[in-house]
Write a protein that binds this DNA or RNA. Structure first.
Lengths: 222, 222, 222, 222
DNA sequence: AATGAATGAGATTTCATTCAT
DNA sequence: GATGAATGAAATCTCATTCAT
């Protein structure tokens, strides 16, 4: 039985390896440019073996997307658990995003792949999606934060939370799309991070209740 | 003579027809999925005929992009002429965008095709682009408005205009990317328009100078 | 009737113009690279008009070939008239070739086009060709000279004239093929001419009767 | 292990088969007329499979060319090793060429394909070519022989070796080009061989030093 | 379980030739 | 008589997917 366990372990490792390689290729070249051939070569496997683990390109890419979303979600579990105030959650979100990830990789993966797999589907549509997806959990998380901020009197009470969530993620998705078009070394540069922080800040201000003191929206520092 | 004129007209019509078919296919399926074959079939022509009018896929797509940008620019000429205050320009911009176009097609085309033709280039980069393109005129126009709003004390004086332009257009681009993923009849629905208006409003609030009266940022009404 | 004559004249002119343009294109780019489109454009005509004058590419090219051969033949009529000794004919031939043509154009045309039109046919095959072609007259002319040189005791009496003709023209054809692969300005350069003269000389020496004084084979000078 | 060896063998066989089919098509129809489609059909494979073995038409053709040159070079190794006198080398060259090959296929392939791949390059240019090619080894071999013959007092001391090499190979190339235009069964006929021998002989005579006894240039017999 | 090998379907592009006006 | 317009057929090449071993 030790043998079959090792086998099982190896199988899981191989799956991971394929996913990892595909991820890296997507980050390096963009989804559209990644072929099964590329993935197999990078994973040092034959294409046929890749098909053994993933029955098709779409399935494989979808799992990458889900994994990225899962990582994202794992990371922001504290927010989900509701132990934070809205603004603290936002700060936590931002810090987690920038300081911990240090890059936009998860978001890039999520948005790029999503668009690739479901080109006819709106990326951000709280209603239509099958709720088993981790991507939706992300959406829910954001929505929760937004609702909380509204409840706490920081965000405009008239703000439509669902729509604000879409808008918020749209922002991210575009910033991220732009990031993917940059040379890898530039992606994590302070300039990009700064621009993202500014964008984040502007969105928050846009969401804010009229007359509120902006300093409480500050995410970048202390 | 009447004959040659008619011929000329027909030729122009055919060109337009090809561009239109290609445009529709892009709107329906996304750039990546559109092939010359598809375009030819939709235009009820042979592939060779399409090549008679456009010497290559890139050329054809670029023209579609430029056309969309030109239409956009034509429409917003008054803003360019600088006769409006910043906030009036913004209102004009928004009204033109929603009421007159009634859809986001132009923006969809511009962003989708841009990304397709120059996959390695950030879409929105005020510095690097060749300034002969109408797309750049759009960027300049937006930047001009933003600068003006800053000068008029409506926008945050610390706002980085170039970055704000990028952010602004990013927003549009995403909203528009989402729109493209909807069934055509949904695109012009009031709900979409409303959501876009909200997004626009939120961005403006995000750009606004602290403490300013939000009513002056109202774009949707009177 | 003056009108119909002018018409007739114009028709002939246009034919010539087409042939001339095609010739120039062949010389500039090589047969394989010349398209009917190119020819029409250079002749400032529509493709359809070119087809009015020549019912197909092959027909057109064949005529070019024949024309080149005709020019060649015209030029060497004195040799044909048999008024020269063999060696004088050779000198005349060479001088005519180099000094008068100043280039290998006719040969390039003849060989390139021949090979293009009849890729399955040996270029130089005295027996099989349809004897109405001027190309064959060239062959006959050369053969006549070779026979004469044999009769005059300059060439090896055992030389097979037909074969020697083939060999001789093969030589030309290759030199010419090499010439066509050079930039136009190089084609008439003294170096090329010198190399061709050397080649010519070597062939003659190969043809010569044993023991004959080589100085009588000199073609380049006095 | 026997299995993987057999696989390897089959792969090599398949490669060879593709090369062989391509070769035959070139010999039968001329390079320009051979398409990847043709090659695939003849090899009873799909186009994609051909591309599996050769990443492009040029690569495939180049390999054919190099193979032909390699066969040629292998065969004439003794000459390269310099153990022969110039005239013996020539005889060896000729005998190898005619008696062993029995056909001009190798030369046909070499010249046809060379011209096809490098249409802008003179075939025979000792200087410019990249010396890693076997084709160049052939050129060098010929040049070496010619130099040796000059040194041995058989060839005209004023003969320009480089040019003579070009001329010599030009001759071959044309003879060979003519051969390609014949029905396959004719190619090896004694008549062709005889004609080639004559041509060879004539070239040698053309190269010979004045006054030398021609019998020592005899290549065909004893 | 793993893979080398094969392929069908489709993408972009070119060009000789035809035809209605 | 001239031509603008159109096209069928073919060429090169790519890629997701399958299958025998």
């Amino acid at each position: 039985m030790g043998i079959s366990e090792r086998r099982e372990r190896e199988k899981i490792e191989r799956r991971k390896s394929i996913l990892k390689c595909a991820r890296e290729l997507i980050l390096a070249q963009g989804v559209e440019r990644v072929s099964m051939e590329d993935i197999a070569r990078k994973a040092e496997l034959s294409k046929a073996t890749v098909y053994l683990y993933f029955s098709g390109k779409e399935i494989l890419f979808n799992e990458i997307c889900e994994d990225a979303a899962r990582v994202f979600v794992e990371h922001f579990r504290p927010i989900l658990e509701g132990s934070l105030t809205g603004i603290a959650a936002l700060k936590y979100f931002w810090r987690g995003y920038v300081e911990l990830f240090g890059s936009s990789d998860e978001m890039i993966i999520i948005f790029q792949v999503r668009n690739f797999i479901y080109p006819g589907l709106p990326i951000i549509s709280l209603e239509e999606q099958n709720k088993s997806s981790h991507v939706d959990i992300i959406l829910d998380t954001i929505k929760t934060i937004i609702d909380q901020c509204k409840a706490e009197g920081i965000f405009d009470p008239q703000l439509d939370s669902a729509q604000a969530t879409r808008l918020f993620l749209s922002m991210f998705s575009v910033i991220v799309e732009n990031a993917v078009r940059m040379p890898p070394e530039a992606k994590k540069s302070p300039i990009i991070i700064k621009e993202m922080a500014n964008a984040f800040q502007i969105i928050l201000r846009g969401f804010a209740k009229e007359g509120i003191d902006r300093s409480c929206l500050n995410i970048s520092d202390g």
